[in-house]
Design a protein around this nucleic acid. Structure first.
Lengths: 138, 138
DNA sequence: CCAATAATGCAATACCATTGCATTGGTTAA
DNA sequence: TTAACCAATGCAATGGTATTGCATTATTGG
């Protein structure tokens, strides 16, 4: 278990400190994207600023990606294994549930091509679908 | 001119006060979505809180819509004429230019249908395309 | 014209991101 | 083993924005 976590950090060239292992373990347990304060609540010992910098480090090294789901509060989720630092730009769909307020990555649902007006060249796509999630529909 | 502005307010059941006319006129002049502080800078006399509440009123009455373009700073733009309060949810594409930092509505470019996993029911779509805009491409 | 209601402006609050700086901890070289 | 270095951490402080309370002013309806 812990070994896998450390390997995952190492594969992204991130020093496996105690704090980073804790944060990564917490992220691995999630099935939805979580905010900085979620992480702060999930860890007894941690200082907000340390978590903030830990997430920045993870993001820069392509371990996680940041999602702006329209709430104004950034959420974080693990990238898929093979995403590289420069190309990990959320090319999949994110789903925000209006009921449980959770944000899900839908990595299998790629964003279809959009036709843009002449002169507009796209670099990055970010599609937020809001609605009701699987759990809350029942 | 001013008459048209007042009529537009009246059609959304918004009392045409001096401040609201000024803010709406400013919005009519834009060809991109602007933030609250943009409006504050654009108007000599205005108080930040009044603008804040004016925009909330406009939004509630379906005169403008709010765009979360991923910067964390909400932007506002006029809705198309026929949009109703409950159905004015940004079903078109927004474009954020990484160069000039402006946010454009592309109302003619509707978002294609997305297939979601079973149980997920969409209510609202929000697609932000980031890249380089017409002006900055040249 | 007056009373009721809505809108405004000021002050204050709260929240979150971000940075500076001092301290800790772990690794390397002498 | 110790000294020196670099990365990581934690505390304190700052800055920006959203948001609310309350008193004042403007607007509307009778």
């Amino acid at each position: 278990m812990k070994l896998q976590v450390e390997q995952r950090l190492a594969s992204k060239k991130i020093n496996p400190t105690a704090m980073r292992i804790l944060v990564l373990e917490l992220l691995l347990q999630q099935n939805s994207a979580i905010s900085m304060s979620d992480i702060e609540k999930g860890l007894e010992t941690a200082d907000r600023i340390t978590i903030y910098r830990t997430l920045k480090t993870f993001e820069q090294n392509g371990l996680i990606h940041c999602i702006e789901d329209g709430t104004g509060i950034p959420k974080y989720a693990l990238c898929v294994e093979d995403c590289t630092t420069h190309e990990h730009h959320d090319m999949h769909v994110h789903f925000y549930c209006n009921s449980c307020k959770e944000t899900f990555c839908l990595p299998d649902h790629r964003i279809p091509d959009i036709s843009l007006p002449a002169g507009f060249s796209p670099a990055e796509l970010n599609l937020i679908v809001k609605g009701t999630c699987e759990k809350c529909t029942q």
